[in-house]
Simulated scan of single mutants.
Amino acid sequence: MMKGCVYKGPLQSMQFLELDKYKKRVFQVLLALTIVSGTVFVFFNYQRGQSALALIEMAIVILSVGLMIRVNKIRNREKFLRIALVYLTFFLSVMMFAFSVEGVSITVFVWALGIPLISYLLLGVETGFIMTAIFYSLTASLFYRGFHAHVSMVDSIAYANFIACAFVFWGISHSYEHSNRFAKDRLNQLAVFDHLTGLYNRSMVTKLFTKAIESPNTHQQQISVISFDLDHFKNINDQYGHAIGDEVLQRFSQVLMEQIPAESSAFRMGGEEFVVILPTSNEAKANNLAEKIRKAIEQDLIISGLPKAFYVSVSVGVITDWVKSANLNSMLKAADQRLYQAKQQGRNVVVSHG
């Protein structure tokens, strides 16, 4: 990817807003365990005369059943995180209530060791850290209030064991989730972006075209597909080397990113072929943008390894359709046909009418 060149197209707003299926699976398992174990604890606590705790546990069982149904239908990451945050806040609050019940066993605090694990797994690094810090602090306060005079806690080493164990769980959860997120982000980049130019690769064309036509702006009821092909690019590679060819591709991509509006998407389709998907209010704006990019390449694309007399140019094909009737495959085909016409007309031109 080009140094200093980070593409900020529509994916920044959807990224990876797709739900991590593994987090969803963890949540489903956790909900199932909550339903089963919660039901068991409702029975035992009711038998022990802890009616208030039993009622609260019954509430979280009912909540978990409802969330289980809801989570099965979720596909969006933001919605998932909101639901997970609601569940975890309620779940950990119930845990704190259980810790504060008069006569509770010291062994119940072993549940606190799971706080960082489920917080990080469900909520990620930042929110997981905050959640752990809050509820670990509450747990420490409740534990000290209830058991500072307990026979097991008369020796300072006992506190050291509890604290060390808690921080081990916290540290492992934090480091694992941080490394896991870094690895997934890296894989996402490799799957989504072209490594040389920083543009989206062709695998993202269908997804971002669909996104554009499903949520059009009020003033952008049309959509354009603009195809670009660098002229005589094979000759550049053959005469001046692939390193110069790569620099041409990178500089051209940088021009695309500088010229296209924020709501559009730019792709490297392969080799010297590029595509821009542009939501627009009328056909003329797409044609004007294509011509603006063509001129920018002709006038400003200067490569140090090429002779001064050599200029890089691009041929362009443009097709525009109404959002309601737009079809990606037919538009790509039409844009390529017009691009071919541009080549036949001598290159370095924009063809927007068949």
Rank of each mutant, 00 (worst) to 15 (best):
V40Y: 14
F41K: 03
F41A: 08
F41V: 07
V42I: 14
F43W: 15
F44L: 14
Y46I: 05
Y46E: 11
Q47T: 14
R48L: 15
R48D: 15
R48N: 14
L53R: 03
A54T: 11
A54R: 10
L55R: 10
M58R: 04
M58Y: 09
A59S: 14
A59C: 14
I60T: 08
V61F: 02
I62G: 07
L63F: 12
S64D: 04
V65C: 09
L67Y: 09
M68N: 06
M68G: 10
V71K: 00
N72H: 15
I74C: 04
R75H: 12
R75Y: 10
N76Y: 11
N76Q: 11
R77P: 00
E78P: 01
K79G: 03
L81N: 01
R82Q: 07
R82W: 03
I83T: 01
I83V: 05
L85F: 10
Y87W: 05
L88Q: 02
T89C: 13
T89F: 04
T89V: 10
S93D: 06
M96V: 04
M96F: 06
M96H: 05
F99E: 01
S100A: 14
S100P: 01
V101W: 03
G103E: 11
G103R: 06
S105T: 10
V108G: 01
V110G: 10
A112Y: 03
A112D: 07
L113V: 09
I115M: 05
P116R: 01
L117T: 13
L121Y: 09
L121V: 10
G124I: 06
G124W: 06
V125G: 02
G128R: 00
G128Y: 02
F129Y: 12
I130T: 08
T132F: 06
T132V: 09
A133E: 02
A133K: 03
A133L: 08
A133I: 03
I134K: 01
F135I: 04
Y136G: 07
Y136H: 09
S137I: 05
A140D: 03
A140I: 04
A140L: 10
S141H: 11
F143E: 01
Y144G: 03
Y144A: 12
R145N: 13
R145E: 11
G146I: 02
G146T: 05
G146W: 00
F147G: 10
A149H: 13
A149F: 12
H150P: 08
V151L: 13
S152P: 00
S152E: 11
M153Y: 06
D155W: 09
D155Y: 11
A158Q: 05
Y159E: 07
A160K: 11
F162P: 02
F162W: 13
I163A: 15
I163K: 09
A164D: 12
A166D: 09
A166P: 08
F167M: 15
F167Q: 12
F169Y: 15
G171S: 11
G171H: 08
G171N: 13
S173L: 05
S173E: 07
H174T: 07
S175R: 12
Y176A: 06
Y176N: 06
Y176C: 05
E177T: 09
